[in-house]
């Protein structure tokens, strides 16, 4: 099967997945106790005020209709207006259909920030994990191997906020090298942005390294008993060359998969770190929106998360195929 047909097939399946995810999320948020009107008005809510807000936002209509409206809009690329924005606009008397508060404009800068943080983390974490993994495979069962294993496992086992506060203590308080707050805004230069992002990126690096490093080590060691590795050794090559030139290219597929999974995690799962560093990413927006039952935003966030998983996994599979001559070049 050619790569192109694989891509098309997987993208088709991806659209189907997104559709199913949207239904599940829509139903799940609706099943949560309370809705946007109650969440907004809190304990002082009068039934009239709640009903007014519901009518304003269309929450009084049947769930199927609301989902269908959302779906038609989403299919055209319009993810609607966040309830919070719509409610605010109605309150100040603006037209709620104005573009000012659309979910897309709200989400885009947050998503860009999250991608920036994920990229900075990936640029640090992937080379480090691969290097430590390769060295651990080369010096397996040595002190280095054990230290690498124990320390990465320790960092992945500690809660993220704990790792984050330790880093703040060491790198921001005791040695004021980096800022402890990552308040990023428009108009910052790249260097400033990078400096502000470095501490959360380092925290996330500690969180994702263990997984990637251990997979690299295991995938390489798994191949060391193969006849072609023995052949490479019998050619008198150095152990480093045997591992990097002969084992690593054949171990790429599982490594790429783990890297993709971790990248997806960096895009979808970094709420805690964002909160600790006050980083304006998508995770925080998501949690806030769930809290106030702001369904359009929740839906859009979930679509972004699901797309990230689907695309990164597709990318991983394509790269795994490209890394394998037997799949890349037919007989």
């Amino acid at each position: 099967m050619g790569i192109l047909s694989i891509i098309i097939k997987r993208l088709g399946l991806g659209v189907l997945t997104l559709f199913l995810v949207s239904i599940i999320i829509f139903l799940a948020v609706n099943m949560l106790p309370g809705d946007f009107a109650q969440a907004l008005l809190g304990q002082a809510a009068t039934p009239e005020a709640v009903a007014a807000i519901r009518a304003d936002l269309g929450l009084d209509r049947p769930i199927a209709n609301r989902y269908f409206d959302w779906l038609v809009g989403a299919a055209r690329g319009d993810f609607g207006t966040s309830f919070a924005q719509a409610n605010f606009s109605a309150y100040v008397g603006e037209n709620s259909s104005s573009n000012y508060g659309s979910v897309a404009t709200q989400l885009a800068p947050r998503f860009a920030n999250t991608v920036f943080l994920a990229s900075v983390t990936a640029v640090i974490a992937i080379p480090i994990s691969l290097a430590i993994g390769i060295l651990a495979a080369l010096y397996r069962y040595s002190i280095f191997d054990r230290v690498a294993n124990v320390s990465t496992l320790t960092s992945i086992s500690s809660p993220e906020f704990f790792v984050a506060y330790i880093l703040i203590l060491v790198l921001a308080v005791l040695n004021p090298l980096l800022p402890s707050l990552s308040n990023i805004f428009d108009g910052m230069s790249f260097a400033e942005r990078l400096e502000k992002t470095l501490l959360p990126a380092l925290t996330l690096t500690l969180v994702v390294t263990a997984h990637m490093m251990r997979m690299t080590r295991a995938a390489i060691i798994n191949l060391l008993a193969s006849p072609y590795i023995e052949m490479a050794r019998l050619k008198g090559l150095s152990p480093f060359r045997v591992i990097v030139v002969h084992a690593l290219p054949n171990a790429l597929a599982p490594i790429i998969n783990v890297v993709a999974l971790n990248l997806a995690y960096l895009i979808t799962g970094v709420v805690v770190v964002e909160v600790v560093f006050v980083y304006p990413g998508i995770g925080q927006l998501f949690v806030d929106s769930v809290k106030i039952r702001d369904i359009p935003v929740v839906q859009a966030c979930c679509m972004v998360f699901a797309s990230a998983y689907i695309l990164l996994n597709l990318l991983a599979d394509i790269m795994a195929i490209l890394s394998n001559p037997r799949l890349r070049i037919p007989k």
Binding site: M231, L234, N250
Partner: peptide, 24 residues
């Protein structure tokens, strides 16, 4: 010893299909 391997003493394995690295 490693300097001898491949250069002065060489090895031909039973299964060439398994002993050639599929990636190169």
């Amino acid at each position: 010893r490693r300097r001898l391997l491949g250069s002065r003493i060489a090895y031909v394995a039973q299964s060439a299909a398994a002993s050639f690295n599929p990636s190169h």
